[in-house]
Design a protein around this nucleic acid. Structure first.
Length: 551
RNA sequence: GGUCCCGUCGUCUAGUGGUCUUGGACACCUGGUUCUCAUCCAGGAGAUCGCGGGUUCGAAUCCCGCCGGGAUCACCA
């Protein structure tokens, strides 16, 4: 290709952009003045829909490494693919980072000195580097149509060779100046491709922070650098190399899927005379396929759990989720957490070495809920009340909680004041099932309809009889022991067994046992057959409400 | 198919040549806590350390081969 043709291509690519030289650009991204050992970390989500829990996981690890070393944590929006972009995604990303309290120092809204933090706004920067590659003969235009590319892949499959654009399979790699000029004259769209000088036969080695010494074949793929979709935006590869250099990122942590393209990124750095990065590749969170397909990466389409909005809507407490995620990242976390129950999670030192050992961990909702239950139970009463109410998405329930503030305070205190607070709630959403029956309208609407089914083994006459007998002697002032004595007395009066052994020996002699009798009271009062201590519940409900429900 | 990563109870993991007839956590089961639960406490079951060879007095740990799972080979990131 002649210089004239090269410049014609360069002019086409830079049309309308205000290009600066590399030296000028690099002068505006000076070395950061940070204490020794400070790490500059980043997490680069794409605004292509909802926020993936893996992004939060990566965010958490990167944020910790950055901030525990007095470094910088960057949130960079990788929006170079305008076709896949979904409106509102950036707002969702920002919200999710806020919800999980992942404080980024630079990124959307929090503009820093190394921006812009949207890749789509850095087009002129990438182009300066792309043109340099073009001029140095390390990039070339490729006018191939999608059909031609497909045909190549088919031919490669037929020939049983590795697919991809490399060597003789790279259609436009060695075209003559005339051919290029002709395509240019015809106005054919083109991508700018990297011209790799690597060989699949030769090997390179590099050090991965998590996986140790890696020895892999050199890259020989001529990957696209600049797209032909009219945006003239870069692909990930160019953008990554340029941005992480300019933003002065010290360690590139990314998920395993990038492992195979690391050789390419190293070659790109060399072609641009940039220092290659320190990489660390970690395994993404996976999930057990519900259809029995085995372990696989958490997928956006199939798994609700992949979507952090699912977590936020259900009201999983941030601290519980983060504790679980930290446990996934570092196996030493569990012990630390146990021995430091009242210390903030941010005090936990995340270790790189421990992260190394982590395979693709399976998301274990049961374990995560266990963390969340413990956390919610540990909350002081006022904090518990405040957060529980704030998190409710059911308007009627939230209204009921707020309007009857004094009553609500008593309700939420049930069995939470002692040494061992109840652990009913794994997420704030669970509050409805645990507390809504205290409010008459909600009780009537959502709980009372279940009473019949819960008591179907006992005939209605017996139920009515039992309620009347129990009410007769009930006194809100009774301590739970007396309360139970009275319940037993009422049960006996109605033909229930008060001695479990006697009942088991001759069940036919009784209507039921004490447990059945208590169940009648419990279900009539709450619509549920499992609740906290009835004495406490009744004391809070008040005599009028009790009479109402037992009649 | 090529290349790379990974393989210890159901799950997450501890373990880097002897102290491991593999330890912990979650889940599960049993019993206890004078009504049902959430808990809590005590106990239990659960892993031929993917398989086969080798090195060694000795291997979950080192070496080789195999098998299995995953990732990647896009103008997606």
């Amino acid at each position: 290709m002649t210089d004239t043709t090269t410049e014609r291509i360069a002019a086409l690519l830079s049309e309308g952009l205000t290009l600066r030289s590399r030296a000028q650009i690099e002068a505006t991204f000076p070395a950061r003045s940070l204490p020794p050992g400070a790490e500059v970390m980043r997490v680069p989500p794409s605004p292509t829909g909802f926020v993936h829990i893996g992004t939060i996981y990566a965010g958490l690890v990167n944020e910790r490494i950055a901030h525990q070393s007095a470094g910088v944590f960057i949130l960079r929006i990788e929006d170079t693919d305008k076709k896949r972009e979904v409106a509102g995604s950036v707002a969702r990303i920002v919200e999710a980072f806020d919800y999980f309290d992942l404080q980024y120092d630079e990124g959307p809204i929090r503009e820093g000195a190394y921006g812009p933090y949207f890749q789509s706004q850095r087009g002129d920067i990438y182009m300066a580097y792309a043109l340099e590659l073009l001029r140095s003969g390390r990039a070339y235009p490729d006018f191939a149509t999608p059909e031609e590319l497909q045909a190549t892949t088919a031919a490669q499959q037929a020939a049983k060779v590795r697919p991809g654009t490399y060597g003789k399979w790279a259609l436009w790699r060695e075209k003559t100046d005339e051919e290029v000029t002709a395509a240019l004259d015809a106005g054919t769209p083109f991508v700018l491709r990297f011209k790799s000088t690597g060989s699949h036969e030769k090997r390179i080695t590099y050090e991965d922070v998590f996986k140790g010494r890696m020895e892999v074949p050199e890259n020989d793929l001529d990957v696209p650098l600049i797209k032909s979709d009219g945006t003239r935006l870069p692909t990930y590869h160019l953008a990554h190399v340029v941005d992480d250099t300019l933003m002065r990122v010290t360690k590139v942590f990314r998920s395993d899927e990038w492992l195979p393209s690391t050789a390419l990124h190293i070659e790109l750095c060399q072609a641009l005379e940039l220092t290659p990065f320190t990489y660390g590749h970690f395994a993404p969170i996976s999930i057990l396929d519900k259809n029995g397909g085995g372990k696989r990466k958490l997928s956006k389409r199939k798994d609700d759990e992949a979507n952090v909005e699912f977590w936020i809507a259900a009201g999983y407490p941030v601290e519980g989720v983060k504790a679980y995620l930290l446990g996934l990242a570092n196996s030493t976390f569990e012990d630390w957490y146990r021995s430091n129950p009242s210390v903030s999670l941010s005090e936990f030192p995340v270790s790189l070495e421990k992260l190394a050992a982590s395979r693709a961990p399976l998301l274990d909702m049961a374990k995560l809920q266990d963390y969340c239950k413990d956390y919610i139970a540990s909350l002081p009463q006022d904090e518990f009340n405040k957060r529980l109410i704030a998190a409710q998405t059911n308007k009627d329930f939230k209204h009921a909680l707020e309007v009857n503030a004094d009553y609500t305070n008593k309700v939420l205190e049930i069995e939470r004041t002692g040494e061992k607070p109840r652990k009913d709630l794994a997420k704030w959403e669970d509050a409805f099932d645990n507390y809504a029956y205290f409010y008459d309208q909600l009780f009537t609407k959502d709980f009372a309809p279940q009473i019949l089914a819960q008591l179907e083994d006992i005939d209605t006459k017996t139920v009515a009889h039992a309620c009347a007998a129990f009410l007769e002697s009930y006194d809100p002032a009774d301590e739970s022991q007396i309360w139970f004595e009275k319940l037993k007395a009422a049960a006996e009066k109605c033909g229930f067994a008060t001695d479990n052994k006697a009942f088991k020996a001759n069940p036919e002699k009784f209507v039921g046992n004490v447990a059945d009798f208590a169940r009648i009271v419990r279900v009539k009062l709450t619509g549920k057959n499992r609740t906290p201590d009835l004495t406490a519940i009744m004391r809070v409900m008040g005599i009028d409400r009790i009479k109402n429900r037992l009649q």
